[in-house]
């Protein structure tokens, strides 16, 4: 087995691996049919740092339901995403409001991520042409550098670069670029852990590089993959429950 890998590596090196195969392997690794994730979001603000905890349920990439658990201020706020629609429920007002239009550009809980960033749910290979641009070691792990260029028009970032761990098929770094090539946002993935047969990064730092600041950390505290989720979870009625 080891020998096989040793033989394979120079083979891949020489041939330059198929970028779409890499993307597929990443999807295979990361995309479970269902997922229950508990985590926290650390927002580094101008004057203080806030930690927001949440639990989210998702099925595929179309459906997700997130409930905020703490701090007390955000507890009970729920968010439902079904395809292109996003609803937010606030217990303080006991109302569900659909987030649309200009409101999608607002940041999620003060983080560097907008609702719109969160809404993107197409598979990368459906949106981008990919090429392997080389290799680099990130945090001691050999990575392929994938360059993705948009093949469809309706896309927020025309160009992306992804550093994919050659062994675990996990992205370790992601950079989002403007059409002009200007770097706009950067995500750094770390603390990759094993969950059953899958590898999953448990810490992501997401940052708008044009703005001053340290960005936002997403930390996974519990992750259950491929579990059964009640379909009721993905209905508007569940928001008010």
């Amino acid at each position: 087995m080891k020998l096989f890998i040793l033989l394979l590596v120079p083979f891949l090196w020489a041939q330059s691996p198929d970028p779409y195969v890499i993307l597929d392997r990443v999807d295979q690794n990361m995309l479970s049919t269902t997922k229950i994730l508990e985590g926290k979001m650390i927002v580094y603000g101008k004057r203080n740092t806030r930690t927001i905890t949440f639990r989210s349920y998702s099925e595929g990439i179309d459906k997700s339901f997130t409930e905020y658990l703490s701090p007390a201020r955000e507890a009970g706020t729920k968010m439902l995403k079904l395809k292109d629609n996003l609803w937010i429920y606030s217990p303080a007002a006991d109302r569900t409001i659909q987030i649309s239009g200009h409101m999608l550009k607002q940041s999620v809980m003060g983080s560097d991520m907008s609702y719109e960033d969160m809404m993107e749910d197409r598979k990368l290979k459906d949106v981008y042409y990919a090429t392997v641009k080389g290799e680099e070691t990130v945090d001691g792990h050999a990575c392929w550098i994938l360059e993705l260029n948009a093949k469809v028009k309706e896309v927020a970032y025309e160009k992306m670069k992804i550093w994919v761990d050659q062994q675990r098929y996990v992205p370790l770094r992601e950079e989002l670029y403007a059409k002009s090539g200007q770097l706009l946002k950067r995500a750094v993935f770390s603390d990759v852990q094993r969950f059953g047969s899958r590898w999953y990064p448990t810490k992501i730092n997401y940052r708008d590089v044009l703005k001053k600041g340290k960005g936002t950390d997403f930390i996974v505290t519990r992750l259950k993959l491929d579990v059964i989720i009640d379909p009721y979870m993905f209905t508007k009625a569940a928001l008010r429950r």
Binding site: G45, A92, R95, M109, G110
Partner: peptide
Amino acid sequence: MEGSLTFRN
């Protein structure tokens, strides 16, 4: 103040 969406009746 922190940038979270807020609604209240």
